[in-house]
Design a binder for these strands. Structure first.
Length: 375
RNA sequence: GGGUGUGUUCCAGAGUGGCCAAAUGGGGCAGACUGUAAAUCUGCUGUCUCUCGACUUCGGUGGUUCGAAUCCAUCCGCACCCA
């Protein structure tokens, strides 16, 4: 499923290709999040042509609640339902175990959620989640795990990890005994947990490595622990995961987080940050972050991002965008979402080029300084 | 011309003797956001020190009172009704 093309000489950065039946994904890659079957505020045309997204996410928990798995099955899978012909990856609902703590109850069997929509009780088990993900039909499906909080103590983290492993066995048993429903191949990625504890992360990585799946995810990071701990855990895990399989760092992150991840051998990233922060008025650029609500842009009639690669960067001025955000006009949300996603895809594309040409490290070091500026 | 009502901090609008620098909403300013319960949330929004605290404000002026945004007189503005 994965072709490793180039490994950086001065870091663990890699360039490669993930092959799926919906097309190849050039790595390192950022995957826009489309939780409920839409990358919020962005039309498919812009996602494809302007942002140049190669793969997007969907979420099992959310899609199960709405529109419901039967509708997706009837549509012929999520690709057809939302009209996206490139690869899709679905998260399993493991993140909701973390983010919806007050409306869920965890047992060995699975997780009982009280629907955040109408309150009805739903039991998610490793088996039912695999069945749902089969029906959604993503190219890459994530195992059902617990995204353990970064602040968990060691005892909790260990128990959580072990349960995730037991659930993983059940996920694999179910997934491997059920067919692809729509005529293309689906791939199940297990998830390394272990919180911020080196030995737990090592245990988890070794256990997963031996399963010999098509790709691996690193989960439970950027959930409350210090960034340095996150980087450290990535190194620990990537030292163990096989070189010839793609590695996906779940839910990360800021542009600088992503460069640090790439440097440490991560191939795939996803995060709500470009879209959510965009909707909340913040944009990332190669020269730093900008809060477009700020007064200083009030009469700045220069392009939104003169260095940006998206058409919105050249077509709209900062003053105009600030006005749209202040007036709560939906076009503002759309423009900033498109900008941020285009920037993220540009960033990982540049990283890939620099890995291929062999100067990733100096390029990364220089970018880091600029990315974190506040403009 | 007569009558009634009204004037509060950027706006709207509470407050009708001390617990009022003054509710609440809006606006403004800033911050947060990491496998999306998020077009959301948080803080600040008279001045000065910026912690305690001090000072100046509720249309103007003059009173009553220990004490007034709140009561009285008068003037000014605005709204509506009657001629």
């Amino acid at each position: 499923m994965f072709t490793l093309q180039q490994t950086d000489t001065r870091s663990s950065a890699r360039a490669g290709v993930v092959h799926t039946d919906h097309g190849d994904i050039l790595t390192p890659i950022f995957m826009p999040v489309g939780t409920v079957g839409t990358v919020k505020g962005v039309q498919r045309r812009d996602l494809e042509d302007d942002i140049k997204a190669q793969i997007i996410l969907g979420n099992t928990y959310h899609l199960y609640l709405r529109p419901g798995t039967h509708i997706l099955h009837e549509a012929g899978g999520l690709h057809r339902f939302e009209g996206w012909t490139r690869p899709i990856l679905t998260d399993s609902g493991g993140y909701q175990v973390f983010s919806l703590t007050d409306i869920r109850k965890m047992t060995e069997e699975g997780v009982q959620f009280s629907s955040h929509i109408d309150g009805r009780k739903l039991l998610f088990t490793p088996e039912s989640v695999m069945d749902i993900e089969r029906e959604i039909g993503a190219d890459i499906v994530m195992a059902f795990d617990e995204c353990c909080p970064g602040t968990a103590d060691r005892a909790y983290a260990k128990a959580s990890m072990e349960r995730t492993h037991r659930w993983l066995d059940r996920c694999i048993a179910r997934f491997d005994s059920t067919p692809d429903l729509y005529g293309y191949r689906q791939h199940l990625f297990p998830i390394v947990q272990g919180c911020v504890y080196t030995d737990l992360r090592q245990d988890a990585a070794k256990r997963l490595r031996d399963l010999d799946r098509d790709g691996y995810a690193i989960g439970g990071l950027a959930v409350g622990e210090p960034a340095e701990k996150m980087y450290e855990m990535i190194e620990v895990v990537n030292d163990i995961l096989p070189q010839d399989k793609p590695r996906y760092l779940m839910g990360v992150g800021t542009p600088w987080n992503i460069l640090e991840g790439i440097e440490r051998g991560v191939d795939m990233f996803d995060c709500v940050m470009p879209t959510r922060n965009g909707r909340n008025g913040m944009i990332f650029t190669r020269n730093g972050v900008m809060n477009m609500r700020n007064k200083k842009w009030e009469n700045d009639f220069t392009p939104l991002d003169p260095d940006g690669t998206s058409y919105v960067d050249q077509q709209y001025t900062r003053a105009y965008v600030r006005h749209l955000i202040h007036a709560q006009e939906m076009l503002g949300l759309e423009i900033l979402s498109i900008h941020n996603l285009a920037f993220y895809l540009w960033l990982v594309g540049e990283a890939r080029q620099h890995i291929l040409t062999g100067d990733f490290k100096p390029w990364k070091d220089e970018m880091m300084q600029r990315l974190m500026n506040r403009l």
